[in-house]
Amino acid sequence: MTDLFEAETASTTSLDMRRLQRRQRRATRRKWTLVASAVALVVLALGSSVAYSFVKSLSPSESAVADYTGAGSGSIQVVVEAGDTGADIAQTLYDAGVIASTEAFIVAWNQNPDSSSISAGYYFMQREMQASLALDQLLNPDYRDVRTLTVIEGKTLDTYYQKIADLTEYSLDDVKAAAADSAAIGLPAEANGNLEGWLFPSTYTFNPGVTPTDVLSKMVSTTVEVLDRNGVAPEDYERILTVASLVEREAGTDEDRPMIAGVIYNRLAIDMPLQLDSTVHYFAPSDSVFTSDADRAIDNPYNTYLYTGLPPGPIAAPGEASIQAAVNPTQHDYLYFVTVNLTTKETRYAVTYADHLKNVQLLQDWYAANGG
C-alpha cells in the first residue's frame, strides 16, 4: 500500500512540473511575440515617416519654392501650345523670365480649379510675376494676343477678300491667290471651284502671323460644319447654299426667311423664273433697291428674269438662319412677295399676279412718301 501511494504521489508531481514548464514556455513565446510586434511597429513607423518624407520631397512646397511678389514689370509675349500641360506652361514661363520657378507655378496650378481651361495662343505677360498672378493672367482673355475678323451676312467675295487682307497684312492679290487654291483651303468638291457663298459670316479669332489660307480654311470649314449641323447632305451643299444666299439677300426679317424660301421652291416646282432683283444686282451692282429694264435684259446666267431654275451658284454668303430656311421652308401656295416698307421690312405675299401688283403699288406709295 505504501508503495502504491508513493508511486501515485510521484506521478502527480511530475505532471504538475510539466504543466508549469508549458506555462513558462507559453509565457516566453508571448513575451517574444510582444517584443517582435513592438519592433515591427517601430520599423513600420520609421518606414512610413521615410516614405512620407520622400513623397513630400516630390511635391512642391509653397514655403520652400522660389516665387516673385507682385505683378512684375515690362512686357513679354509667351506662347501656349495646343496640348501643353501645366508643367509645359510652367517651363515656358520660367524660360521667359516670367516666374521665379516652375514649382511655384505648379503650386498655383494645383490650387486653381480653372487651370486646365487655359487656351492655346499668344499672351502678353510681365517679367518677374508672382506665379499665381501669372496663372490668373493666362486665364484672362483680355491678355491674349489675337487677330479678330468679323464678317456679316449677305456680302460677296470681294468684301471678304479685302477684310482678310486688312487682317493678315497680306495684299489683296495674295488673298485672291490663296482663294484660288481650292485644295489648300479645303473647299469641297461640290462647290465646283466656286468659293462664293462658302465663307461663313461670323466673328473669328486668330493668332498673330495668321495667313490668308488659314483664314479662308477656317471660314470654309465653318460653312461645312453649319451645313452638316442642319442635316444637309454633301451632294446638296451647293444647292442649299444657293437658295440660302437668295433668301439672305431678299429677306428683311427672320420670319420672312422660310416664307421666301417657300416662294422660291414653289416657283422652281413649276419651272417659273425666279425673277429676283438680288440676282441681277449680283452681276450688275447698283445702289438702288430696284433694277432697271436694261439690267433685267442683260444676258447673264445669274439673270433669273431670263433663265429659269437656280442661278449657277450662291450670290452671297448666307448666315445660318437663311440656311435653315432653305432646308425647312414654309409650306404655302404663294408665288410672289414684295417688301412694301423698306424701313420696317414688312413683306406681303400673293398667290396671283393681280394681288402681287396691288402689293407692288404699296411699295411704290411708300417709296414716294419717303423721298423716293
Rank of each mutant, 00 (worst) to 15 (best):
I240V: 15
A177F: 08
A131N: 03
N112F: 00
D228G: 07
E235D: 13
A165Q: 10
S116K: 10
N140A: 01
R127I: 10
T156M: 15
D214T: 01
A179M: 00
P234F: 05
T211D: 08
Y122P: 06
E196C: 03
F124S: 15
V151F: 09
A184Q: 04
L138P: 03
A183Y: 04
G231D: 12
F200G: 08
E196W: 03
S132D: 10
A233E: 12
I240G: 04
D136N: 02
R144Y: 06
D136T: 01
S119L: 15
R229N: 14
N207Q: 13
L149C: 08
Q130V: 06
E169Q: 11
W198Y: 15
E128P: 04
L139A: 03
Y123K: 03
R127Y: 13
T211H: 06
R229C: 05
R229H: 09
A233Q: 11
L167Q: 02
T102W: 12
L135M: 06
Q111Y: 07
G231V: 07
T223V: 06
Y170G: 09
P113Q: 10
V226I: 13
S202P: 06
Y160M: 11
F105V: 11
V107F: 01
F200P: 08
V224S: 09
E238D: 13
T148G: 06
L139K: 04
V232W: 03
S221V: 10
E196L: 01
F200M: 07
V232N: 07
N112T: 04
W109Y: 11
A165D: 10
T205Y: 11
L241R: 05
V243M: 01
L167F: 04
F124Y: 14
Y122I: 07
N207G: 12
A177H: 07
Y143F: 15
T205C: 06
D136I: 00
S116T: 12
I152P: 09
V151N: 09
V224F: 11
A134R: 00
P113V: 08
S115W: 08
L216A: 02
S202V: 11
L187C: 05
I152E: 15
D174S: 12
Y161T: 09
T168H: 13
Y161N: 05
Q162A: 09
V151S: 05
